[in-house]
Simulated scan of single mutants.
Amino acid sequence: MGYTSFVAVGDSFTEGLNDPPVDGPVGGLGEVQRFRGWADRVAERLALTEPGFRYANLAVRGKLIDQIVQDQVPLAVEMKPDLISFCAGGNDLIRPGSDPDRMAKKVAAAVRELRASGAEVVLFTGTDPRDTPIMRRARGKFAVFFMHVRSIADLYGCHLVDMWSMQGLRDWRAWSGDRLHMNEVGHRLVAAKVLHVLGVPGDDDWRMTWPPRERVDPRAKLREDAQWFREHFGPWIGRRIRGTSSGDGLDPKRPHLTPWERATRERG
Rank of each mutant, 00 (worst) to 15 (best):
S5R: 01
F6T: 08
F6D: 11
F6G: 06
V9P: 07
F13P: 03
T14R: 00
E15F: 02
G16A: 06
D19L: 03
D23K: 05
G24D: 13
P25Y: 04
G27P: 06
G27E: 10
R36C: 08
G37F: 04
W38Q: 14
A43H: 01
R45G: 09
A47E: 10
A47V: 12
G52N: 01
R54F: 04
R61V: 06
R61K: 05
D66L: 04
I68M: 00
V69A: 00
V69G: 03
Q72E: 13
L75K: 06
M79D: 11
S85H: 02
F86W: 00
N91Q: 07
L93D: 12
L93T: 01
M103D: 15
M103W: 00
K105H: 13
A108W: 01
A109F: 03
A110W: 03
V111A: 05
A119S: 15
V122E: 08
G126P: 02
G126V: 01
T127R: 00
D131Q: 09
I134F: 02
I134Q: 07
A138R: 03
G140M: 04
F145S: 06
F146Q: 12
R150V: 07
R150Y: 07
I152V: 13
I152K: 00
L155K: 14
Y156I: 05
G157R: 02
W164D: 13
S165P: 08
L169N: 09
W172S: 15
A174C: 10
E184F: 02
V185N: 09
L189P: 06
K193Q: 15
L198A: 07
P201V: 06
W206D: 12
T209H: 11
E214Y: 06
R215K: 14
V216I: 15
V216H: 11
K221P: 11
W228G: 04
W228T: 12
R230T: 13
P235M: 02
I237S: 09
I237Q: 14
G238Q: 09
R242E: 15
D251Y: 01
D251W: 03
R254V: 15
R254S: 12
L257H: 03
P259Y: 01
T264V: 14
R265L: 14
